[in-house]
Design a protein around this nucleic acid. Structure first.
Lengths: 246, 246
DNA sequence: CGCGGTTTTGACCGGCTTCAAAGGGAGTGG
DNA sequence: CCACTCCCTTTGAAGCCGGTCAAAACCGCG
């Protein structure tokens, strides 16, 4: 036999509580005095980008460090034949643009209109507070990337989509999740800032599969698609149970 | 079609005795005077572990920071039903054990007999040099995790295996690769430190698929399996062309 | 109301998983 | 030195999940 294209499948099964997958997007910003001060220093520049603007490209010479002030940025890599993998999605407070090699290791593109603070690496290296802050930011990315590796390597299509939807639900499906509020409907409106193609490239699926999974969830009453970019999780707990993490 | 919970993939038979691999291993160690000095300070402890020893477990309280001095360590996460994903493989000079939440986000297990320096987070936070060093280490992991996300999300089984094999070939298949040496056979012996199961869990495949791909490569004369853990890349360039990155 | 782009749906196919069994290979004991 | 066992690995056969290709439906928007 001979091997060619095609990703892996996975499975699902119920289990007990415990979770991870902290969506970058909805994390509370860290307050760090030295960092806050630096951000207002004259050397830092603030750039505004439209949605779909490219901040920097894979293999460009890495000159600056970027801090997301508002909006969302996706990082992706391309294979030679055009296959794309979105490797991370950044939100407020996240950093990108560091490089060891002198070249950016991936492309950064704005998902929404975004404000980005452009920093100078050399300044940061002076202060332990700033370095410690950067450290925490990098660590956050690493944990998110670990979660993402599990998703890409071991989850089924429906588990991936469910996990993706749960990113947008603050304080649920992560460590310390208290379950649904008492006496509440446990419903949530998710407003997507990504096209189906971008979601697919993030989840390691095709656009058709993402669409089919969403249609299936709708048919089963788990979600309601109020508009293409507005998805209501009718029952958050139910979506959470489909993520595969339990 | 209906996207219900399909049967689970992934091997992890629950047993703990199995393991090996490399990756970071072939990077030249960074020389950093402040870091070097710290490593010899009396506060740092040096631990020795046998192969398959668990350094720490997912969800344990994170107490220390570890630096790999020798040997190889794999980091993995488990899903509730036992599916396992190896998220990273660490070699000499790499760090692990940091945590933001106070809990380790994954399990660390020795692939080979390994020496590990146990550090104290608080000490590091004092010095800009040490922090800068940690920064570089984290950044290295992030770039590796980006590559891994591409592999898991977008590569076929044979591309994954080829990419895996190329990890062990120093200075080839990476930025600045000069191609084969002139007048040389362009052959390379790879000594695996991982079982097929561990490789599968790293590549997001099943053990059978890994085995089948290797057999297929052997049949086609791309590799020779001299022993189960010794694989000769008959033609490095040919393997490299199968990684999908071109 | 028409038009370009995205999204959804359908039909089919194939790569990888799954399940099952046979095949090594290293260590142990007769 | 061979028999035997335990594990890991390989091989085989069959089935399913998700990819591929193609076309219809939808959605803003001028």
């Amino acid at each position: 036999m001979s091997f060619d294209e095609g990703p892996a499948a996975g499975g699902f099964d119920g289990g007990r509580h415990r979770s991870r997958y902290a969506g970058t997007t909805l994390r509370a910003p860290v307050d760090d005095s030295a960092w806050t001060h630096y951000r207002t220093s004259p050397r830092a520049r603030l750039d505004r980008h439209d949605a779909h603007a490219v901040l920097f490209r894979e293999d460009d010479t890495a000159s600056h460090l970027y801090e997301v002030v508002s909006g969302q940025i996706m990082l992706y890599r391309l294979l030679g034949d055009g296959r794309r993998q979105v490797v991370d999605i950044l939100g407020e407070g996240d950093l990108c643009g560091h490089s060891l090699t002198g070249l950016y290791d991936c492309t950064a593109e704005a998902l929404t209109p975004a404000e980005v603070r452009v920093l100078d690496r050399r300044d940061i290296d002076q202060s332990t507070d700033l370095l410690a802050h950067v450290n925490r930011c990098l660590l956050t990315r690493i944990e998110a990337l670990h979660s993402h590796a599990v998703l890409l390597g071991r989850k089924s299509a429906s588990e991936r989509v469910a996990s993706f939807l749960m990113r947008f639900v603050r304080g649920r499906g992560i460590v310390g999740c208290k379950g649904p509020e008492r006496h509440s409907a446990d419903t949530e409106l998710v407003i997507l800032k990504m096209t189906r193609q971008e979601i697919a490239d993030f989840l390691g699926l095709t656009i058709e599969t993402v669409s089919r999974v969403l249609s299936d969830l709708k048919r089963r009453g788990v979600i309601a698609i109020e508009r293409n970019d507005r998805i209501r999780l009718v029952n958050v707990c139910r979506v959470c149970k489909m993520t595969g993490i339990h």
